Simulated scan of single mutants.
Amino acid sequence: MNIRLVTLTEELFWDVVNLKSDPEQEKNIQIFERWVGSNAFFIGACHVYGFTPKAIYDNETLIGFTCYGYRREHGRYELVSMMLGHQFHGRGYGVPMLKAIINEMVEVFSCKEIYLSVIHDNARAIGICEKVGFRPTGDIEKGFHDEPIYCLKLN
């Protein structure tokens, strides 16, 4: 496994937009999928809020998408989205992807804490976040779904 974060470019745009977290979403471009907002939605959020969009690769294969940045309204660094294409689920990518994103955020921002939110019933994502060291803050992000907020405190 060789996880790489690659800057989103025009050449990668449609490949990333068409990468879906659920096979049922293959024929649709929607704002929200079952476990995550669509990549198209988050690319738009990156443009508006100044977040950093990245394609996620394992060697030369596009497997996912992420975006992160400083969220001014909350005054903190956030992992805004992390998605893995449905065809790659169950292959052990979750923890290595999350660690690669954390490492890049620390390198770029020198941040001491990273926040994220997870849809309340996404047990797989919650388990990955907790395995890496994120802990619930007790706060809830109100969006399309209630999303408990987690924080990773770094050295």
Rank of each mutant, 00 (worst) to 15 (best):
M1R: 10
N2S: 06
N2K: 14
L5A: 04
V6S: 00
V6Y: 12
T7W: 07
L8R: 01
L8I: 01
L8P: 03
T9C: 08
E11V: 01
L12F: 04
L12R: 09
F13V: 05
F13G: 06
F13E: 09
W14F: 08
D15S: 05
V17H: 15
K20H: 05
S21R: 10
S21M: 13
E24C: 01
Q25E: 12
E26A: 08
K27Q: 14
N28P: 05
N28V: 05
I29Y: 13
Q30E: 13
Q30F: 11
I31A: 03
I31Y: 14
W35M: 12
W35Q: 06
G37I: 04
S38V: 11
N39S: 10
F41R: 14
F41T: 15
F42G: 02
F42S: 05
G44E: 13
G44K: 03
G44R: 11
G44N: 15
C46R: 03
Y49W: 12
F51Q: 11
T52W: 07
T52F: 13
T52R: 02
P53V: 02
K54T: 06
K54C: 10
K54F: 08
A55G: 04
D58M: 00
N59F: 10
E60I: 13
E60H: 09
T61D: 12
I63W: 06
I63T: 06
F65W: 01
T66D: 08
C67M: 00
C67G: 07
Y68F: 07
Y68G: 05
Y68W: 01
R71C: 03
R71Y: 15
R71T: 13
R72N: 13
E73L: 11
E73C: 07
H74E: 14
G75S: 06
G75A: 02
R76V: 08
R76E: 03
Y77C: 01
E78Q: 07
M83R: 00
L84W: 04
G85S: 04
H86M: 08
H86F: 13
Q87R: 09
H89R: 05
G90M: 10
R91T: 04
R91D: 05
G92Q: 07
M97D: 06
M97H: 02
I101P: 04
I101H: 00
I102R: 06
N103T: 05
M105L: 11
M105C: 12
M105F: 09
V108F: 14
S110A: 15
C111R: 13
K112H: 06
K112E: 07
E113T: 11
E113F: 10
I114T: 04
Y115P: 02
S117K: 08
S117H: 14
V118F: 09
V118R: 13
I119A: 14
H120E: 14
D121P: 07
R124T: 01
R124L: 04
R124Y: 05
A125V: 03
I126A: 00
I128K: 02
I128Q: 04
C129K: 02
E130N: 00
V132H: 04
R135K: 15
P136L: 07
P136V: 05
T137N: 12
G138K: 12
G138V: 04
G138E: 09
D139N: 09
I140Q: 11
G143F: 11
F144C: 06
H145K: 11
E147S: 12
Y150G: 00
Y150W: 01
C151A: 07
L154Y: 11
